[in-house]
């Protein structure tokens, strides 16, 4: 049909064509549906319950449990939410439909990564962090400095990002939900043993949040206690590098995937 000259057409965005539209679509899925408040409600309740914030103030216990909350419960949440983000659309044909429009595959993948990353950052990491900080403030507990606290939230975000990118990559590589959930969930379930008994532990984000075996230390716990985390930097670096690797694999593989 003859192009209607009334419109200003989208053009010249190269490998990211369609990204802005896709990102706003993915963000709307988080923030214009029930999803955001269901997540907020869930993580608020779990934070208050697990950290025993209504009980006797115990900062080291709360820090330890905060590690468990973010490193185990929220990691499960990330995997569960993320596995369907791409897989559902691949299976029911929405991915093919969207990519029949002038949108690139990297734009499609990156829009999901950013929107889901932001959604989880706000509804899981920030919200739980704010609840913990507010509770400590009310309880009159000695507070870690704001920079340390923000760094602690950064560590949690990195841990979540690892599960998020891993699950995204698996959803690109496989079209079977059981495989995706089994692999990422299995890795999470085995993390404690892998970190304790094998050198593979350094490749996992497990001990970024959850206390290491016999040490009661993790970057998260140390930061919440106001301590430096220099000794953990290699682990942080490896996990960050893996996130980049997972995203690259997802982008490269999805670019050649048949939909």
């Amino acid at each position: 049909m003859a192009a209607n000259s009334t419109f200003e057409r989208v053009s010249g965005l190269g490998w990211l064509q369609g990204f802005e539209n896709l990102l706003s679509h993915e963000l709307a899925r988080w923030w214009k549906t029930r999803m955001w408040w269901i997540q907020c409600l869930l993580w608020s309740i779990l934070t208050v319950a697990l950290l025993n914030l209504g009980g006797e103030p115990d900062r080291s216990f709360a820090a330890m449990m905060f590690g468990q909350l973010t490193g185990v419960f929220q990691a499960v949440g990330v995997i569960v939410i993320m596995q369907g983000a791409l897989l559902d659309e691949k299976i029911d044909g929405r991915a093919a439909w969207i990519l029949s429009k002038p949108a690139t595959r990297p734009a499609y993948i990156l829009s999901k990564l950013i929107a889901y990353g932001l959604g989880m950052l706000v509804t899981m990491v920030l919200l739980s962090g704010v609840i913990l900080y507010t509770a400590w403030l009310i309880q009159g507990t000695t507070l870690p400095g704001p920079i340390h606290f923000l760094k602690a939230l950064g560590v949690i975000s990195l841990s979540h990002l690892w599960y998020l990118t891993l699950t995204l990559m698996l959803a690109v590589l496989f079209s079977n939900r059981i495989v995706i959930l089994g692999f990422s969930g299995g890795l999470l379930a085995l993390s404690d043993n892998l970190a304790r008994y094998t050198p593979v532990g350094v490749l996992l984000p497990w001990n970024l949040t959850v206390a290491g075996w016999g040490t009661e230390r993790s970057p998260l716990i140390d930061l919440l206690s106001g301590q430096p985390i220099d000794s953990f930097l290699p682990n942080l670096g490896v996990v960050a590098a893996e996130c980049v690797l997972f995203v690259l694999i997802a982008l490269l593989r999805f670019n050649r995937q048949e939909l």
């Binding site: 200003e8 057409r9 989208v10 549906t33 029911d92 044909g93 439909w97 002038p102």
Partner: peptide, 24 residues
């Protein structure tokens, strides 16, 4: 054809249109 169930027909058409047109 499968669309995002929470979207309305108008939202779907907006979503599609934004791939092609910026304005007006």
């Amino acid at each position: 054809p499968r669309f995002h169930e929470y979207m309305t027909a108008r939202q779907v058409l907006h979503f599609v249109a934004r791939f092609y047109f910026n304005k007006p």
